[in-house]
């Protein structure tokens, strides 16, 4: 098929990987992952915990905050910044379709953040190799996989924001507001639902996986502890009722979330005037 996609992705990826924003993320994420790996092994092992679990918990927490933030902000600025700068018309004046341009932006953003995240994980993993067993290595890779799913869903959401907004400021403000909602407020709402409406464990689980971040968190927890006892009663319920199948919705939800956002974002982008 004759498509401009590879050329557009290459160009966009090149410019993203050289941006100060992305280089900063790579440096900070790698430094924090390595520090957590080091401190996890150093500190928690002395108080009797399994060293790897301690390091991993810290990395998971870092991951759950940093990855969605970088993904949503980078993606949400991708189109709107070009539109505001006036460079979008140059790209559209060339033999490319809007779909190709949109997906090139989305793929290159996903690739850049994934590469940065893999690099951070890779270096931490290399350090943890000193104590990792084969089983631990698989857990580590599963968590990396869950992070990549989270990147997919939040880049999708960011692309939708980028198509729907007309200024960088609005895109940035919307991204940060949604990030706060998904990382902090959503849990508060879940607690309110549980306390006020006394929802069932099944409903709570369904509400959890509606948030791609929570879905990824569940997946990460499942990777570390397939009995899911780490998350208390809900985990026991899921393990009892669904067993290993409980992981599938957590796997599918971020994919579905990202895909829907990308489709709506593309439809929006195809309609906008310059």
């Amino acid at each position: 098929m004759n498509t401009a996609l590879p050329i557009l992705v290459k160009r966009s990826l090149y410019s993203l990987l050289l941006s100060r924003w992305m280089l900063g993320y790579i440096a900070v994420f790698t430094a924090l992952s390595l520090s957590f790996a080091y401190l996890g092994l150093l500190g928690l092992s002395t108080v009797g915990f399994r060293a790897f679990s301690g390091a991993l918990a810290a990395i998971i927490n870092l991951n759950l905050y940093a990855v969605p933030l970088v993904s949503i902000i980078t993606a949400s600025l991708s189109i709107v910044a070009e539109r505001e700068n006036g460079t979008l018309e140059f790209h559209l004046s060339l033999p490319v379709t809007r779909s190709e341009l949109f997906f090139a932006k989305a793929f290159s953003t996903m690739l850049a953040i994934s590469l940065a995240t893999i690099l951070g994980y890779g270096l931490a993993g290399w350090y943890l190799m000193l104590v990792l067993s084969d089983a631990d290595l698989i857990i580590f890779l599963n968590i990396l996989g869950a992070s990549l799913l989270m990147i997919f869903s939040f880049v999708g959401l960011g692309m939708l924001i980028s198509s729907a907004t007309r200024s960088r400021f609005t895109a940035l403000a919307t991204s940060i507001a949604l990030w706060i909602f998904f990382t902090l407020l959503y849990e508060v709402f879940l607690m309110v639902f549980v306390i006020v409406f006394r929802i069932s464990a099944l409903d709570l689980w369904l509400l959890m996986i509606l948030n791609p971040l929570e879905a990824s968190r569940l997946l990460m927890v499942y990777s570390v502890d397939p009995s899911m006892s780490l998350i208390g009663e809900l985990g026991n319920y899921l393990a009892r009722e669904f067993g290993g199948a409980a992981a599938y919705p957590s796997l599918g939800a971020p994919l579905l979330y990202g895909s829907v956002c990308l489709i709506v974002g593309l439809a929006w982008f195809r309609r906008i005037d310059l």
Binding site: S15, G86, T87, F90, S93, L94, P95, V96, E100
Partner: peptide, 21 residues
């Protein structure tokens, strides 16, 4: 549209490019 733009040269008004390219 894409095939058209392959055969057309277009210079938009006040064109802008990424400055570091």
């Amino acid at each position: 549209g894409r095939e058209v733009r392959r055969l057309v040269g277009y210079v938009p008004q006040n064109i802008r490019y990424q400055e570091d390219v």
